[in-house]
Amino acid sequence: MMTKAEIILVEDDPDDVYLFMSACEHLEPQPHVAVLGNGAELMQLVEQEDCRDKVILIDLNMPLMDGLETMAKLNAFPEKDTLCFIGFTTSSNQHDVKRAYELGAKSFISKPGTLVEMIDLLQTLSRYWFKFNRFYKEV
């Protein structure tokens, strides 16, 4: 059984947000997506609500607080080990990949450039994280 997909997209580029949201319209069930424009907005959200059963996709190149800085700040939260944050970027720089994993990223995904590729990625991501994966939450 697939639980309702809850995705937080931390992305400042309106074109990337549009492509992502357009792909989501083709998914069944459609995920609930919260779009945040930068890492500072994510920090506020994580402080205010439990995000341990959500997938957080973090772009690396953003104003105010970039993705790697955001991942570093997520490490200050007590639930950091159970937060599912993923690097989601156009970068394929091996330093960025290594640093994201060092900071606790659960995965590092290169952004697809077409709608068909984005749909495929989001179907796979949703199936894995929300059908087969089990998030940890204390009861």
Rank of each mutant, 00 (worst) to 15 (best):
V10H: 07
E11I: 04
D12S: 11
V17M: 03
S22H: 07
C24N: 07
E25P: 09
L27D: 03
P29W: 11
Q30N: 03
Q30A: 01
P31F: 06
P31A: 12
A34L: 12
A34Q: 10
V35I: 11
L36M: 13
G37S: 15
G39F: 11
G39L: 13
E41H: 13
L42G: 06
L45W: 10
V46S: 07
E47P: 12
D50G: 08
D50Q: 07
C51D: 05
K54P: 12
V55E: 08
V55A: 06
V55L: 06
I56W: 02
I56A: 05
L57S: 02
L57P: 05
L57A: 02
L57V: 04
I58Y: 06
I58P: 09
M62N: 04
P63Y: 05
L64E: 12
D66A: 15
G67H: 06
G67S: 08
L68S: 14
M71I: 10
A72G: 14
A76P: 10
A76G: 15
A76H: 12
E79P: 12
E79M: 10
D81Q: 09
L83S: 15
C84H: 13
F85T: 10
I86M: 13
I86P: 11
G87N: 02
G87Y: 01
T89I: 06
T89S: 14
T90E: 15
S91T: 02
N93K: 01
N93F: 01
N93E: 00
Q94V: 02
Q94P: 05
Q94D: 00
D96K: 01
V97G: 02
K98V: 01
K98D: 02
K98Y: 03
R99K: 02
A100C: 07
A100S: 10
Y101L: 03
E102H: 08
L103A: 09
A105W: 05
A105S: 11
S107N: 09
S107L: 12
F108Y: 00
I109R: 03
K111E: 03
G113E: 02
G113D: 04
L115I: 01
V116R: 00
I119C: 00
L121P: 05
L122E: 00
Q123R: 01
T124E: 09
S126A: 07
Y128A: 13
F130A: 09
F132P: 11
F132H: 07
F132C: 15
F132V: 07
F132D: 08
N133E: 09
N133F: 15
